[in-house]
Design a protein around this nucleic acid. Sequence first.
DNA 1: ATGTAAATAAGAATAATTACGGTTTATAAA
DNA 2: TTTATAAACCGTAATTATTCTTATTTACAT
Lengths: 136, 136
Amino acid sequence: MKIEEALALLKEAGYKYTDKREMILTFFANEDRYRTAKDLLAYLEPHFEGISFDTIYRNLHLFNQLGILESTELNGEKNYQMSCAKHHHHHFICKDCGLTKEIHACPMDRLPTELNNFVIDDHKFEIYGLCPHCQQ
Amino acid sequence: MKIEEALALLKEAGYKYTDKREMILTFFANEDRYRTAKDLLAYLEPHFEGISFDTIYRNLHLFNQLGILESTELNGEKNYQMSCAKHHHHHFICKDCGLTKEIHACPMDRLPTELNNFVIDDHKFEIYGLCPHCQQ
DNA sequence: ATGTAAATAAGAATAATTACGGTTTATAAA
DNA sequence: TTTATAAACCGTAATTATTCTTATTTACAT
């Protein structure tokens, strides 16, 4: 997702434009991988001295809720990256650098009949390993 | 996995037998679902007044490492259940009661060639929803 | 210009987990 | 059966990630 698209989404949903929000989006737009709240804070700190945790977390939540960011949990920490959705897909995630690669196959396509009596709300399919770059 | 089997594994790996460890295993043996450290503590507390966090977490780690317990992360909390491994499989997990159901289909069977240059260490496939009982 | 709801800062609170120093205990060998 | 020793344990403090609270500031529609 592009920054402009995200800003439009924000405006449409009645949220305000702020320079911090723009910079948060810039951060994620320039990264093709999952990043933590801490990573984001480190990026914002030099530009906005004294920026608060609250701002970080509130916006991560909001953006996630609006579908601007997608999230996953990697060793006990929530990680976010710019949403590449529109079409449903899953991810390979590099354990070293956090780089992601879309996987278009989805195991839910042919679901086992064993789950006939279960209500299915959600699923998670992720592959972990090392990207070509981090293998060296 | 049965308690005896787990105790044998412990002994074989050179760890000591203690009454607390036996009760931890009893707890998980009687549950067919993922449980948190807190759940375990609540169960042990009446039997061992003043049992420490350290004991809980140290043993959860150890058991997980030995393959006695498997773990997953559900809304920011680590959850454990008795390992049902031997054969590779995945889980349906009830969001209400934590009940699990094995799924024998594995999406890694036919991996997309897109990942040819990636080293794959691990993967996660979980389906979340409501079990028949919790739908009422 | 101005009113209002949203956004923010600052820091305290919470929740899960880990770490540390001192004591007890399971186990094996004398 | 005593004894030595490493493992297990307790009590508690520290850490880490995250959320909450209150007062203040700001974007933006009117």
